[in-house]
Computed example of a mutant assay.
Amino acid sequence: MIRVSDIMDKEVINVKNGKRLGYITDIDMDVNEGKIVSFTLLGDGGRGIFSRGGEGEIIFWNDILKIGCDTIIVNIGSELNLDEFNI
């Protein structure tokens, strides 16, 4: 079992493009089921425990691939377009 405080300290990274999405600032739970539904992120540097204010990015529980020691790996959005970089 993992504690909410453990999740809040981990950086969220998108596996599709390697982008650092930031840190979790809020958690949406289904209290009837006792399960986490989604997380809210405020982006790089937007750390805080259950902070309010500003628009955040929503990450759904189903988008999480792996919760590691230091990071949470998610699978969201489109893949990196290498044509943009003339590779």
Rank of each mutant, 00 (worst) to 15 (best):
I2H: 12
D30S: 13
G77L: 03
S51R: 14
I27G: 03
L42W: 02
G46N: 02
L21Y: 05
I64K: 08
V12L: 08
N32R: 12
G43C: 06
G56Y: 02
I13R: 14
I67H: 06
E11Q: 14
D9S: 15
G68L: 08
K10F: 03
M8I: 14
G22E: 03
V37N: 12
V15R: 11
M29D: 03
M1N: 06
D44R: 14
N14H: 11
V74N: 03
D9Q: 15
F39Y: 14
T40G: 00
I87Y: 14
E57Q: 13
I27F: 12
G48W: 06
G48Y: 04
D44G: 00
I2P: 01
N32Y: 09
I67K: 01
S78V: 06
N32Q: 10
L21C: 02
I76M: 15
G45C: 07
D83V: 04
D63S: 15
D83C: 00
G68N: 13
L21M: 15
I72T: 03
R3K: 14
D83S: 13
G48H: 04
N17D: 15
N17A: 09
T71D: 08
M29G: 01
R47M: 12
Y23C: 02
L80F: 11
G54M: 05
N17V: 09
I27A: 07
S38E: 02
E84V: 04
